[in-house]
């Protein structure tokens, strides 16, 4: 039940963002600092979510080559860098994980 409320709250917040300036009608510019900060938001957020996901195993930092998910992620990062292709990145990352785990 609380999760439903949280979802509705997030939905309302997201809608408020999307409607904010449209509702205000007047052309108000975002403060310069905030406008510049916006570009870094997805970069910082996605990185901070992803890295612990693959580098922390069993509640401890594991930066060794024995961490299959970390190694597969590094391979995937190279694929993403070279191809900029979301699908290919996921595909090769998953295949890499399966191969590493078969050893």
């Amino acid at each position: 039940m609380m999760f439903w409320l949280t979802l509705v709250l997030i939905g309302l917040i997201t809608f408020a963002y999307r409607f904010s300036f449209i509702a205000l009608l007047e052309r108000i510019k975002l403060p310069g600092l905030m406008q510049r900060a916006l570009r870094f938001v997805p970069l910082a957020a996605l990185t901070a979510i992803t890295l612990p996901e693959v580098a922390i195993r069993q509640n401890a930092l594991n930066l060794s080559l024995g961490n299959d998910r970390l190694v597969a992620s590094l391979v995937a990062a190279v694929v993403a860098w070279r191809t900029k292709n979301v699908f290919l990145t996921i595909l090769i990352g998953m295949i890499c994980l399966y191969i590493l785990q078969s050893f």
Binding site: L46, T50, V54, A77, V86, T89
Partner: peptide, 12 residues
């Protein structure tokens, strides 16, 4: 694991 991979594909 495809979630972290998706994010990697978006961030890089």
């Amino acid at each position: 694991f495809s979630l972290p991979l998706t994010f990697i594909a978006l961030v890089v």
